[in-house]
Write a protein that binds this DNA or RNA. Structure first.
Lengths: 225, 225
DNA sequence: GCAAAAGTGTTTGGGATACACCCATGC
DNA sequence: GCATGGGTGTATCCCAAACACTTTTGC
């Protein structure tokens, strides 16, 4: 194009915001940095995206290496979040961060590789870089996804109770829903079907298990809440 | 971090999808490429994003230089769209494109700088790179924005008729709306107010002019259509 | 008076909301 | 029998959708 002067691109980095429900609360995976800058602080898992790899490929490789998690296999849903590019966000120099957000229900970081911990989104530690902002942005995006798509499935095992389903929504939205209205509305969407299995646990009536009819992300006919 | 081998970032580029209504149709600005690759083909205005500038700053500079349009001043609304990063999208080598989408109502490209033309989204020419895909993605995002925010304001002058407003929605959505229901619903949102001015043109009843109460982007209390 | 766009109301159906009690089980 | 969470129905209100005629102007 028109730039005769040597063109120097910014560094390109990738970061993953991985959500999972733990004890009925929405949690996000953070890794404790072992090197400067921000040594010892908590950060999103991520790293440098080199030429020749898509950002998602780079992220898969990096997160697998640093945290022992495969974002492609261990997450049930993943999407590109946003590209953060302010010049001062990395003290080492201008770094453009292409970020991704995903959800899973059985993510087990490999603690041998690094200190990786899930923190409740309502009780996050101080974070390196602009990662607190990124997590907040991801949470807002997630709320939106759950309202107009069937993305909740990403938080649930194959068979689940309606109470678990409702709890997933409540954990993401941050407020409680009416049980009768929730069930009526959700069932009317026709995304799930009853199974003939029940879960019995504790001194109370067993709960019927449901499952999603389709494993694919769909836009809802009527948006949720 | 962990990469001892020399790290080579991909090229970072920026591209702008600029929408404007022309003759009641949604149009997008394309520039005819004057150099290889894709010489002579139509493409989104864009270029290289160097270290030390945000992608939006780079885009402002590049689009001003290549098309004579200031995305910051000539667009009423702009947002980051998506980052396209497939390895093969640019034949010269791996280029990660951070794209933006915006809307205006009085965009006048400087034809002295390049051949810049607005094309109706329903009648686009063959396009360079993956730019057809990007325009389609932007159009979908725009439809979503108009359904849950007051972003239509970006297509309209300060004073406008309800017929113009409805036409803007129809041009973006691609289908027609019922006039009575449209007015009832839109007015009930309380975003606009009547003025005491009328527009008279042609052999028919003059139309009352309205204006938006606030120039800011807002999420609607009830989403639109 | 006629062509052309502006403007205006009512009916109906469905979904959202609010709300309280019985059911099945383990101990 | 009691504590615990699972499961269910109804009344009201508001909004979405469907639908056709009158008004104001220029010529």
């Amino acid at each position: 194009m028109q730039y005769k002067t040597p063109y120097t691109p910014p560094t390109v980095t990738v970061d993953a915001v991985m959500f999972q429900l733990i004890d009925n609360a929405l949690n996000v995976a953070l890794i404790q940095r072992s090197t400067e800058p921000f040594k010892g602080e908590w950060a999103l898992p991520g790293g440098y995206a080199p030429q020749g790899e898509t950002t998602l490929q780079a992220l898969e490789r990096i997160v697998l290496h640093k945290a022992g998690v495969s974002i492609l296999n261990d997450l049930s849903y993943i999407e590109q979040l946003y590209t953060f590019d302010s010049v001062a966000r990395d003290p080492r120099g201008h770094a453009v961060a292409v970020t991704y957000m995903g959800c899973g229900q059985n993510i087990h970081p490999d603690q041998a590789k690094a200190v990786v911990t899930f923190f409740p989104v309502n009780n996050l530690p101080p974070m390196a870089y602009d990662h607190a902002e990124i997590v907040k942005y991801a949470h807002n995006r997630l709320i939106a996804k759950l309202t107009y798509t069937n993305a909740v499935y990403a938080f649930l095992p194959q068979y689940f109770t309606l109470a678990e389903l409702q709890t997933a929504y409540e954990a993401v939205f941050g407020y409680e829903l009416d049980k009768r209205n929730f069930r009526k509305k959700f069932l009317s969407l026709g995304l799930t079907e009853e199974t003939d299995q029940m879960r019995r646990e504790g001194a109370h009536r067993p709960a019927r298990l449901h499952r999603f009819k389709s494993p694919d992300l769909e836009v809802l006919s009527r948006s949720f809440d």
